[in-house]
């Protein structure tokens, strides 16, 4: 028997609620809000309460997909990044940096969001950066 409660941070948004994932024999079976967290004080929203379900959802994407001849195919990270970089370069050279926009995410960390806007401004030369939290 291997029973653990793992303290972690909710990945659903940028609030940073703390929760315990209840893990029994390698399977995440439940979510328990952390009572001593100064952020959420033992409370969660409906999304946080269901973290244990999406982590192991069969619908979750675990590898990059690339559309080839109309259908999605699993590809390696190298291939996905190579394809994306070459397309971004083509569009920038053909139509200018402002023809590209970047949508960042509340599910990413502060640091990752910083990197993305830096990439948009410094590498692609555009201020077209937006975020789902600005709805």
């Amino acid at each position: 028997m291997d029973y653990r409660t793992a303290l972690t941070t909710c990945t659903y948004c940028g609030c940073g609620c703390n929760l315990y994932l209840e893990v029994l024999d390698g399977q995440i079976i439940d979510t328990i809000p952390c009572k001593t967290s100064p952020v959420n004080e033992g409370k969660l929203c409906i999304k946080g309460w269901n973290v244990h379900e999406f982590v192991q959802s069969p619908n979750r994407l675990t590898r990059p997909l690339l559309r080839k001849e109309g259908t999605f195919e699993e590809v390696s990270w190298d291939e996905a990044l190579e394809f994306t970089a070459s397309k971004l370069r083509d569009i920038k050279e053909g139509y200018g940096g402002d023809s590209i926009g970047f949508l960042t995410s509340a599910k990413a960390t502060n640091e990752e969001n910083y990197l993305l806007q830096k990439f948009a401004r410094a590498a692609l030369g555009t201020n077209n950066v937006d975020h789902c939290a600005r709805l």
Binding site: M1, Y3, R4, T5, L7, N18, Y20, E22, I32, C34, K35, T36, S37
Partner: peptide, 18 residues
């Protein structure tokens, strides 16, 4: 008993632990 389900103070937080 196989295990005792109680509370543990770990990493600065209190939570359930076996």
């Amino acid at each position: 008993i196989t295990g005792f389900l109680g509370l543990r103070d770990m990493n600065g937080h209190v939570g359930p632990h076996l």
